[in-house]
Amino acid sequence: MKLRELTEVLKADILVENHGPDEDIPLGGAADLMSDVLAFGAAGMALLTGLTNPQVVRTAEMAGINVIVLVRDKNAPPETIELARELEITLIRTSYTMYEACGRLFSAGLPGLGVVKIRNDSW
């Protein structure tokens, strides 16, 4: 899915724009636990989250995520906006809830990771 379609499907505002509308988004994921993002985040994934603190941007940086979608019409604090600018991460805001934002994107054809397993010895 292109970034343009993602913002249309979510009727989203772009808060920090670091990628053009033709940027390819290969898959999506949603989490409010940053350790889950670090465990299951894939490079290039669009991350949907209800958290707005700067650590969301840091976590995205570590996981190789370029696009973050803030759900439930949450406004990002200035530190978060600032860090997203610095780390060249695109920050988007939608008024849909996490459930509905995910549902809309999935129906529109944006896949997730499929079945994941977490084991002590797996990578």
């Binding site: 409010d32 636990l33 940053m34 350790s35 465990a39 989250t49 958290l51 650590q55 002590n120 990578w123």
Partner: peptide, 26 residues
Amino acid sequence: PGYSTAPEWIRDMGFGAGMGLANIKR
């Protein structure tokens, strides 16, 4: 995995889910 002693405010910020060391090990 899942064991945590993190205080509530840390959990509110998306951390302290008890997955940190498990992630590091993996």
